[in-house]
Amino acid sequence: MTEWLGSLWFAPNGLQEYARKGRAMQGIYIPYWTYDADTKSNYSGARGDVYYVTQRVQVKRNGKMVTETRQVPKTRWTPTAGRVARFFDDVLVLGSKSLPKTYTDALAPWDLSALEPYDPQFLAGFRAESYTVKLDEGYAEARTYMDRMILRDVKFDIGGDKQRVTSVDTSVSDVTFKHVLLPIWMAAYKYRGNTYRFVVNGQTGTVRGERPYSKIKIAIAVIIGLIIAAAAGAYFAANG
């Protein structure tokens, strides 16, 4: 927490002083669902290949109309259809609603190969939260992720410079799931009457959270940037 708060750009000076004092953090195991699934998808669409044609156009140069040639891109579309397959292993879905999902998603990636069977000793010094996202709710979110990956696979399979996807029909089989607990460190701090939270990945140390900004520092940075831009513009105008 101290290192993260103290290194923030445009942080108020008072916050950096607060960071140097150090504050306690709380360890908690957050519930997640993981889903495995085997998918096969039939698709239809079109492949777009870009080619160029030469066109003559009239443009004004120094007050006179002149003829120039330009290479104009065109796209040739070819109907296509095919099939892609992907096995999804450990699609991770947050099982809690107590933390902002944007923070927890940003803590990825997790090394799920390091998972261990449940042992009460792992909870020593940590709290463990119960899941509040039901299994079917988590699966619906996992399917949304899978569909995005399948669409990416389809576009790659179509190839070309551009792709149009008309339909994707996916069959899903061998769906399995696990309920897992992953370690997170949490902390909250107050600054000028406002409360800010942040979380730390207990495996990697990745930090995500809320922070205040110094409007004065941002304004000074903008002014300096404008001065530099104006000076550069004047230099090139004089020497161009």
Rank of each mutant, 00 (worst) to 15 (best):
V59Y: 02
G63V: 05
T69R: 03
G45M: 05
N13G: 12
V66N: 05
I28V: 15
K74V: 07
T69C: 03
R47L: 10
N62A: 08
L15V: 15
R20F: 06
I28H: 04
T69D: 13
M25A: 12
G27T: 07
T39C: 15
R47N: 10
Y51M: 02
T2E: 13
K21F: 00
G22H: 02
W33I: 13
Y29L: 12
G45D: 03
A11H: 08
A37V: 13
T2Y: 02
V50Q: 03
D49Y: 06
V66Y: 09
L8S: 00
D49E: 14
G48Y: 02
Q58P: 01
G27P: 01
G63K: 04
I28W: 02
Y52F: 14
Y52P: 10
E68W: 08
W9A: 14
R23L: 12
T2R: 13
K40L: 11
V66P: 05
V72K: 12
R20T: 01
V57F: 07
L8T: 03
A24Y: 03
K60P: 00
G6M: 06
V66F: 09
G22N: 07
E3V: 08
L5D: 02
K64L: 07
P31S: 11
P73V: 08
W33E: 11
R20V: 04
A24R: 10
E3D: 02
G22S: 10
G45A: 07
L8I: 05
Y35E: 05
L15I: 09
Y35D: 07
M65T: 15
Q71N: 15
K40I: 11
T39I: 04
R61I: 09
D38N: 14
P73I: 05
T2D: 11
D36W: 06
W4A: 13
R23A: 12
K64M: 09
K64Y: 10
G14Q: 01
V59W: 02
R56D: 07
Y52R: 05
T2N: 09
R47T: 10
E17Q: 12
S41T: 15
Y52Q: 14
M25T: 06
S44V: 08
S41A: 15
G45K: 11
G14E: 13
L15H: 03
A11S: 13
